[in-house]
Simulated scan of single mutants.
Amino acid sequence: MVLSPTIDSRRLTGWNGLQFSNPVNWEVIVAGPRHLLVENDLNPLLEIRWEPDGKISVDQVIQATISRLADSKLSVLKLVPPEPFRNLNLPDLSGLTWHDNESLDALVWQCPVCKTVLFLHLNSQQTNPATVASLLQSLRCHQKPEEDALWSIQDFRLILPPGYTYIDSTFSAGLSRLAFSGQDLRLDFCRLAPASARLAQSSLSELLKSMLGRQEQEEILNHSNVMCEMQVNPTFARRLVAHLTRKSMYRWGRIWHDEHHNRLLSLIVESRHLIHLDEAHHLANRYEILPLQ
Results as ranks from 00 to 15, higher is better:
S4T: 12
R10N: 11
R10K: 13
R11F: 03
R11E: 10
G17N: 06
L18I: 15
Q19D: 13
S21H: 09
S21D: 12
S21C: 15
S21K: 15
N22Q: 11
W26V: 12
V28I: 15
L37W: 09
E39S: 07
N40D: 06
N43L: 15
P44T: 15
I48S: 12
W50K: 05
E51L: 04
V58A: 02
I62L: 01
Q63P: 00
A64C: 04
T65P: 00
A70W: 02
D71N: 11
S72T: 02
S72G: 00
V76W: 09
V80K: 11
P81I: 14
P82L: 04
R86H: 11
R86G: 06
L88Y: 05
L88Q: 11
P91V: 08
G95R: 07
G95P: 06
T97V: 13
N101Y: 10
D105F: 07
L107A: 10
V108E: 07
T116S: 13
L118Y: 01
F119M: 06
L122K: 13
N123F: 02
Q125L: 10
T127S: 07
N128R: 05
N128W: 01
L135P: 02
S138H: 03
R140A: 12
K144P: 00
P145D: 06
E147M: 10
D148P: 10
D148Y: 13
A149H: 12
L150P: 02
W151L: 14
Q154D: 13
D155I: 06
D155K: 09
R157M: 00
P162D: 03
P162A: 01
T165N: 11
Y166C: 03
I167L: 14
D168Q: 14
F171E: 11
S172M: 08
G174L: 01
G174Q: 03
L175N: 06
R177Y: 03
R177K: 07
F180Q: 06
S181I: 09
G182S: 05
D184E: 08
D184I: 01
L185N: 10
L187K: 00
D188W: 00
D188Q: 08
R191Y: 00
P194A: 02
S196K: 14
R198W: 07
L199S: 14
L199E: 06
S202K: 11
L207P: 09
S210F: 02
M211C: 00
G213I: 15
G213Q: 12
E218L: 12
N222R: 04
H223T: 03
S224A: 08
V226Q: 10
M227F: 00
C228I: 04
E229F: 01
V232R: 03
V232T: 04
P234H: 14
P234K: 11
T235D: 07
F236T: 02
F236K: 08
A237N: 08
R238D: 10
R238L: 09
R238Q: 14
R238G: 00
T245K: 15
K247N: 13
M249K: 02
R251I: 03
G253F: 07
I255N: 01
D258H: 08
H261A: 15
H261Y: 15
L267G: 12
I268K: 13
I268C: 14
V269R: 14
S271L: 12
H273A: 08
L274T: 05
L274M: 10
I275D: 13
H276Q: 13
E279M: 08
A280M: 10
H281C: 03
H282T: 14
Y287D: 01
